[in-house]
Amino acid sequence: MAVTGVRYETDGHALLTGIDLDAHPGETVGLVGPNGSGKTTLLRCVYGTLRPTAGRILLDGDDLVTLGPKARARRVATVPQESPAEFELTVRETVRMGRAPYKRFWEADTAEDTALTDEALARLGIAGLGDRAFPSLSGGERQRALVARALVQRPALLVLDEPTNHLDIRYQLEILGLIRALGTTSLLALHDLNLAAYFCDRVHVLNAGTVVASGAPGDVLTSELLAEVYRVRADVTVHPATGAPSITYLPSEW
């Protein structure tokens, strides 16, 4: 997946300006940056709820901007930041919704649909929750179900906007570990830089609607960058157990 020269404007105000970034096959790639930096806007351009003012978003050589909603949904699956939990569907029915791009609305489920749904439920560790009502699930269980729904779309690209939002640390680690283990090309926005440093192969840092740094977490997430982009003092070391960058934020008076 490659984003080249993407710009997005609304009411004469540019929210994204000349975004260039990529995600290689099988990579877990993080978008990080302060609030208002453009992470969610960029993801919405990638999965199609916003149309870029300029630029291209290429997946296997095809420009996603030119595809219709159903064709795009066969290539890109998304787990948005906020998903309503009020709909009265079972977990299995919720996951099976991911097969919608492959059929007309009146067509019944096929044996393949059932098999893919069962496989996704098992892969996300929620096979025993299939008959539960989706609203009855915990936050971590809901996120697993939504990732399972995305998986049954058989996407080439999985896009996730703050997949650990509102989850306690156990579920944050579990969800990101599962996403990384899927082997699918994944592009995800994260607030927590330590999680991004540990789980992402590469990170792209956004600030004021543009990419200001890209690369491996250890090369990008430096004290200097955090001071410039986030306006905080931080000590960045290498964690002795994980080998990943470990960020400790320092009070301004230190």
Rank of each mutant, 00 (worst) to 15 (best):
P101F: 11
L195D: 12
L157F: 09
R99G: 05
R99P: 02
W254F: 13
D63T: 12
T90D: 03
H191T: 06
A133T: 06
W254S: 13
I57P: 00
V212P: 12
P25D: 11
G26H: 05
G5M: 03
T94S: 04
H166R: 05
V236K: 11
A197H: 05
R56Q: 15
F87E: 07
G140L: 03
K103F: 09
G183Q: 04
I57M: 15
L178M: 08
P84Y: 00
L221C: 09
R96E: 11
L190M: 02
G68R: 08
S186A: 12
G128R: 07
L121H: 05
R7K: 06
M97S: 06
I175D: 05
E141K: 01
S136M: 10
E107S: 12
H204E: 02
P34R: 01
V203M: 07
L206T: 03
L158Y: 01
P245K: 08
E9R: 14
D161N: 04
P52S: 08
S223W: 02
H24D: 11
V46I: 15
V229F: 13
N207I: 02
A14G: 06
G36A: 09
L151Y: 02
D118I: 13
L89Y: 09
T90E: 05
H13K: 11
A127R: 12
G139L: 02
L193D: 13
V32Y: 11
H239V: 12
L182I: 08
I169L: 15
A145K: 02
A213E: 13
T117V: 15
T28Q: 15
W106G: 03
E253R: 11
P80I: 00
V232A: 00
D219N: 09
S252G: 08
L206V: 06
A145H: 04
Q153A: 00
S246A: 15
D168Q: 05
P34T: 04
P155Y: 00
P163G: 13
V205W: 10
L188V: 01
Y171S: 03
P84K: 01
P245A: 10
R233A: 07
K70S: 14
P101A: 00
V220T: 12
T248V: 14
I57K: 13
L206M: 08
D235I: 15
D20L: 10
E253Q: 12
F105M: 12
D118K: 04
I175Q: 05
Y47D: 12
E119T: 09
P240W: 05
L16N: 06
S138I: 02
A77W: 01
R92K: 08
P101G: 04
A148V: 00
F134A: 03
P217H: 13
F199S: 06
L176V: 15
V205E: 10
R75Y: 08
P135M: 03
R96D: 09
A241V: 14
F87I: 07
L250T: 14
C45Q: 09
M1K: 03
Y8F: 06
P251F: 08
A244I: 00
E174Y: 13
L16V: 10
L160H: 02
A2E: 10
T28C: 14
A127S: 14
P245Y: 07
Q172A: 10
